[in-house]
C-alpha cells in the first residue's frame, strides 16, 4: 500500500506503538491511518464463509484531529468487540469536520494484538508539499 503519495510506517516508541501516516489529501490520509491501525493489530485470518456487512457511518468533531480519532475508534471498536474488519469505501470529510464513510466489513477469526486506545498524544495533522501527514500513538 505504501507509495510516495500515501502510506504509513512504524516509528519507535518505548512502550506503545506509533505510526507516521501520509496521504495526498485528508481522505487518503484517513484511509491509510485505518490500514496502519489494522496492520498493528495483526489481523490473521478471515472467517470461513466470509460474510460481508455494509455500514454507513457519520461522525462529527471539532477539528480534523478529533475526527481522525473518532474514525479510528469506530473501526477499533468493531474489531475488538465484533471481530469485524472494515474496508473503507467512499469517504468524505467536510470543512465543518463531518466525516461520512461507507464501510464493508468482514468477519475475522482472530487478531494478534489488543490496541487499548488511539491517543491524542501530540496529534497534529501537518500539511506537506505532497499533501498531509500525521503521527498517531496507540496505547497497547
Amino acid at each position: 500500500m505504501n507509495d510516495k503519495t500515501a502510506g504509513f510506517e512504524e516509528v519507535a516508541h518505548t512502550a506503545d506503538l506509533e505510526i507516521r501516516v501520509w496521504g495526498k489529501d485528508l481522505v487518503s490520509l484517513f484511509k491509510q491511518a485505518a490500514v496502519g491501525m489494522l496492520h498493528l493489530s495483526g489481523v490473521e485470518e478471515l472467517e470461513e464463509g466470509i460474510s460481508f456487512v455494509k455500514q454507513n457511518i457519520t461522525l462529527e468533531a471539532m477539528d480534523y484531529e478529533g475526527l481522525l480519532i473518532l474514525f479510528l475508534e469506530e473501526l477499533l471498536y468493531r474489531l475488538t468487540e465484533e471481530y469485524m474488519i472494515f474496508e473503507v469505501g467512499k469517504l468524505s470529510i467536510s470543512s465543518e469536520f463531518t466525516l461520512k464513510a461507507q464501510l464493508k466489513g468482514t468477519q475475522i477469526k482472530s487478531y494478534q494484538r489488543d490496541i487499548k486506545a488511539v491517543t491524542y498524544h501530540n496529534l497534529n495533522i501537518r500539511s506537506t508539499p505532497q499533501g498531509y501527514e500525521v503521527n498517531i500513538v496507540f496505547d497497547i
Binding site: M62, I69, T119, Y120, D139
Partner: peptide, 17 residues
C-alpha cells in the same frame, strides 16, 4: 480491560471541548 479503556477514550474525547 475494555471497560476501562473505553472510559478513558470517552472522557479524553469529551474533555477536548
Amino acid at each position: 480491560r475494555g471497560l476501562g479503556h473505553q472510559v478513558c477514550s470517552d472522557y479524553v474525547k469529551s474533555l477536548q471541548a
